[in-house]
Write a protein that binds this DNA or RNA. Sequence first.
RNA 1: GGCCGGGUGGCAGAGUGGUCAUGCAGCGGACUGCAAAUCCGCGUACAUCGGUUCGAUUCCGGUCCCGGCCUCCA
Length: 464
Amino acid sequence: MTLHLYNTLTRSKEPFEPLEVGHVRMYVCGPTVYDRAHIGNARPAVVFDVLARLLRHLYGRLTYVRNITDVDDKINARSVESGEPIGELTARTTRFYHEDMAALGVLPPDVEPRATEHIGDMIALIERLVVGGHAYAAEGHVLFSVPSMDDYGQLSGRSRDEMIAGARVEVAPYKRDPADFVLWKPSPPELPGWDSPWGRGRPGWHLECSAMSERYLGQSFDIHGGGQDLIFPHHENEIAQSRCAHPGSGFARYWVHNGHLMVEGEKMSKSLGNFFTVHDLLDQAPGEALRLYLLTAHYHQPFDWRAEGLAQARATLDRFYRALERVAEVPLPEAPVVPEGVLAALADDLNTPLAISRMHDLAGALNRAGTVEEQGRLKAELLAAGELMGLLGEAPEAWFRRGLKAGAPDAAHIEAEIARRAEARKGRDFATADAIRDALKAQGIELLDSAEGTTWRVVEPDAG
RNA sequence: GGCCGGGUGGCAGAGUGGUCAUGCAGCGGACUGCAAAUCCGCGUACAUCGGUUCGAUUCCGGUCCCGGCCUCCA
């Protein structure tokens, strides 16, 4: 099965071929750690987590690098504002990020480099650029000379002239060309800074990804990912830095960008009050539901985050887990199974909505299955599909009984009531049976009868 | 202004040059003491106007809307 990916560089869907047989290398732009991750930060993390799982499945070995940006003017500003020292702010925010991503079922990347630990690599990169005539020092700054690169602008598809025509280009007096961008800038004593040949200073934003991707993945690697808003200027400038520092190197070959996220049809922003952090949303729904919801639209499309959509994602997981719960005792086949339909959907440029619909097909077939062998096979396929997507990792019972609140009846009490009700039903005393069921329902416990007996689950009043 | 990406049934959301998306919601039925779940069946959907074609939601062009980016926002 051949993976196809939409490559921003060529604006077309291409068959994927790793540079090295059996080993894929991927770099994804990670968070700037100055605040809790919002749901828009979660989308690329989840999308590229699915891609990472797929790459490991298809090619065996993956080196996945996702950085932590811990030197940045937004961090400095937040620290000044709150009084919290920068080191504590970035360490705390990084910890929160890890917790939130884990709740979303996002596996850790293989390498998670911090910018502040690679300043030496960045300085070395700047020196190469200066020697090669692609960068120059001016007033304590070092700038990348955009006119020094013949084919600048390939990724974003814009010419230098077009950029200069843009009204928002601020031309600092020390720039030789309006399009030039900062590689290194001076730091006053109160801000983080490192000694360099150009004085005490700190790196420009684009530099860290060039330096760290080279350190861990080499001068040429397979996939570079991030949000669509990073295409310009961030990724364009990364390409400029890396390829001019190492003439002849290819840098990243496939550029994969996820679409942006809106909330209830509006652009997400703090002023509109529709700014959701992952942490807040985890109070409203299980992380797995947030994750599934993010995967219900193709990664390339804009995503409109809506409360109703989240409830639907949760209902979808209820359906999958119900199908699995019904065959909880059915053994899995010995040989590993591959869910071909789901795999094919994901291999086609990560078509997660189609993959989910094929998981629905599997769940429906599992509900209809007549023999234990068939049930075992379909159960295994659904679970394997879930693993590729980072879903269905819980025991069905745990899924349905999550959120059992303090003060609610405990499991032993519920089981005793179920037994009492079974006696009543046996004696066809349905009034008593229904009274027991209603009483538990009022306490947030729902009883479900089936041919095999009665099970229970926690009712989520906020599920609608 | 420039560069991108879109407009699919009540909702979400894939896909395709010519009988099927899928899920939720709705309607009917089976099953059930009743619920719930599950199963079966049911919908003249593809912004608009032209063009190409035996045939277009799908290809081409115009129009109208919507969204993103255009120097540090995933």
